[in-house]
């Protein structure tokens, strides 16, 4: 117990590059909801039921947004825009958490949600400009309250914590898959290759609209797409440094 606690040198978020990033081509997204379903199945996300969904309590970690422009007959729908946690480099959710439950991962450069620290103040959700955080208003996964969970629980992914009531949650960039791929690569004495694994949403997307990978390696597909002239960062003006790039327009 004599090791000296060495606190890493503090860096401004702007000085740090991201590690994992995503590119979403909204010209290709067809709004088919395959990503939403894949995400729910991978991450043990509970369904909340009709009534709670009407209260805006549904727990989608990713959703496809679309907006209307104009009125009939000159009406237009904007491109579908899958909205998920942007894994901001400078995240508005982080400084407001009194319990340090939403913290920035120094090693993976992701926004973490540490369920066992979360006390449910919901300050983070209040401060998230992308509105991508969802709160467990009930024990949705408790078989005592929902008998059907007893059998539905067979499909739970053992690599992802089942959240209880009073806990905030959000997209993790499938951190369990990141760990799995890194662990496998390490056991074989190599680096994780580009395209070796991907997030559940990108894996399912029939239109190939979602690309995931290392944005700090210039040769990866996701880095190259992110530098496209069509690339847009949402609410960039807030200084959030999002790690998700949207490719807009035709």
């Amino acid at each position: 117990m004599t090791t000296e606690l060495k606190i890493p040198e503090y860096k401004l978020a702007e000085e740090e590059s991201g590690k994992w990033g995503m590119v979403v081509d909204t010209d290709l997204c067809t709004g088919c909801q395959a990503c939403v379903a894949a995400c729910a199945m991978e991450n043990n996300i509970p369904y909340v039921g009709e009534e709670d969904a009407a209260y805006g309590r549904s727990m989608h970690w990713i959703r496809t947004e679309r907006f209307w422009e104009g009125e009939y007959p000159e009406v237009r729908m904007t491109d579908y825009q899958p909205m998920l946690c942007q894994q901001c480099g400078h995240a508005p959710c982080e400084p407001v958490c009194p319990a340090f439950a939403t913290v920035h991962s120094q090693s993976e450069k992701l926004n973490l949600q540490v369920y066992n620290r979360c006390v449910g103040t919901r300050y983070c959700a209040n401060n998230c400009p992308y509105q991508v955080r969802s709160f467990n208003w009930r024990d949705y996964q408790d078989p005592r309250l929902r008998p059907e969970i007893t059998i539905l629980a067979n499909q739970f992914n053992p690599d992802v914590t089942v959240r209880r009531r009073g806990v905030m949650e959000k997209c993790t960039f499938c951190i369990q898959r990141i760990h799995k791929a890194q662990d496998l690569a390490k056991s074989e004495g190599r680096e994780v290759e580009d395209g070796e694994f991907t997030t559940a949403c990108a894996q399912a997307c029939p239109a190939n609209a979602i690309t995931f990978g290392r944005i700090d390696h210039p040769e990866t597909l996701v880095s190259q797409l992110a530098h496209s002239s069509r690339g847009v960062h949402h609410l960039e003006e807030l200084g959030t440094l999002p790690r998700v790039t949207y490719l807009k327009g035709g």
């Binding site: 090791t3 060495k6 890493p8 991962s105 090693s107 993976e108 973490l112 540490v114 993790t172 760990h179």
Partner: peptide, 22 residues
Amino acid sequence: KERAGGDEEKFIKLTDCGTCHY
């Protein structure tokens, strides 16, 4: 912490919340 020794990168990885909690 002990295992990280003086290696900063190792220390970050081994004490990161996201290494065990997700």
